[in-house]
């Protein structure tokens, strides 16, 4: 394919990805409302937002990490570890504020381990964080064992179910909005944000431009750890239970949201606006499927399909070309005699 065509297609696709997402979101709302009278009720929308709060929050640092050309698959395990430690420390009567401080530290250390393994040892983050995914979940199990802690005290145990005063917005969504604004500004308006795109698009050119690739990546992993630890707190209070397998497998939802947002899995492309839209579309879809008594076993298929399409669509051109090449190779011909 001619480079100019590819480039133009790429550019317009990037410009239109968010538009497409907005249309998708609208479609979900319209279809959801048509399918179930409950869909647009305040209580349902509240519910919808509440249940996707943690994934939404964790998707923000994940977005920055993927744009910078890395990935963090340990997010849900950090959430679980944080939840387990919260339960354990509360069960041995620590004051809540001290627990929060410890959890922030826990997230930071967990992220730092990821970051150092990736930047100092030069290991691929995919492998490193698959390792720490297992490791951190194992630590959660060690901390809490098979126990379930659920006697959390008054103001905290309602955080997951009440709205910010004078609004209909759940706390977790309010936190998401604040973090989204911060991430959006950092990514789209600061030198650091520009550096993230450069690192993802061309690691070597970023290094030759004096960008502190290792330091920035380490910080990103630390931030991700802290945010995921915070998500662990929200999760625990929302479900009012701390168990070691809290949020098991949630990293896939987080990655799915980020990819649906149009962030390139190869790094260098994506926007926070897209993530906000993708969070809402994902939550809306899950909720609509639930309300319409959609065969629950099949929701996995729907999400899987959405994920595949969102990875496939931006790269359709390249994949098509590759298929073409493969097809050609299947019928080798004798070289011309000479």
């Amino acid at each position: 394919m001619a480079p100019d065509v590819t480039a133009r297609r790429w550019l317009s696709a990037a410009a239109r990805w968010e538009t497409g997402l907005a249309v998708l979101l609208l479609l979900i709302v319209v279809l959801g409302a048509a399918a179930s009278p409950q869909f647009l009720t305040t209580s349902n929308l509240f519910n919808l937002l509440v249940t996707s709060g943690e994934v939404a929050i964790m998707a923000l640092p994940m977005t920055l990490i993927i744009i910078s050309g890395e990935i963090d698959l340990s997010v849900a395990s950090i959430l679980g570890m944080s939840s387990a430690l919260l339960g354990y420390l509360w069960s041995i009567h620590w004051p809540m504020l001290a627990i929060f401080a410890v959890l922030v530290l826990l997230g930071a250390v967990a992220g730092l381990v990821n970051g150092l393994l990736v930047t100092r040892l030069g290991l691929p983050s995919l492998a490193v964080t698959i390792g720490t995914l297992a490791l951190y979940r194992g630590i959660a199990l060690m901390i809490l064992g098979p126990k379930t802690i659920s006697n959390f005290p008054a103001p905290y145990n309602t955080i997951g179910v009440i709205a910010v005063p004078h609004t209909d917005i759940p706390w977790s969504m309010a936190i998401f909005v604040v973090l989204a604004v911060i991430s959006g500004v950092v990514l789209h308006a600061t030198a650091t944000g520009r550096s993230l795109y450069a690192m993802g698009a061309s690691p070597e050119a970023a290094l030759f431009s004096g960008i502190r690739v290792k330091r920035i990546k380490t910080i990103l992993f630390v931030v991700s750890g802290v945010v995921c630890s915070l998500a662990g707190v929200l999760w625990t209070f929302r479900l009012a239970t701390a168990v070691q397998n809290n949020g098991l497998g949630l990293e896939l939802n987080v990655v799915a949201v980020v990819l649906l947002a149009g962030v390139s899995i190869f790094g260098g492309k994506g926007s926070i606006g897209g993530v906000v839209l993708a969070v809402l579309a994902f939550a809306g879809l899950a909720n609509a499927l639930l309300l319409t008594n959609f065969n629950q076993e099949a929701t996995g298929i729907v999400f899987g399909a959405v994920l595949l399409i969102s990875v496939f669509a931006p790269n359709a051109g390249a994949l098509w070309a590759r298929l073409g090449r493969l097809r050609k190779h299947q019928r080798p011909v004798r070289p011309a005699r000479q």
Partner: peptide
């Protein structure tokens, strides 16, 4: 192409 520029930017 590799070191001087970020070709996608």
């Amino acid at each position: 192409r590799q070191q001087g520029l970020v070709m996608d930017m």
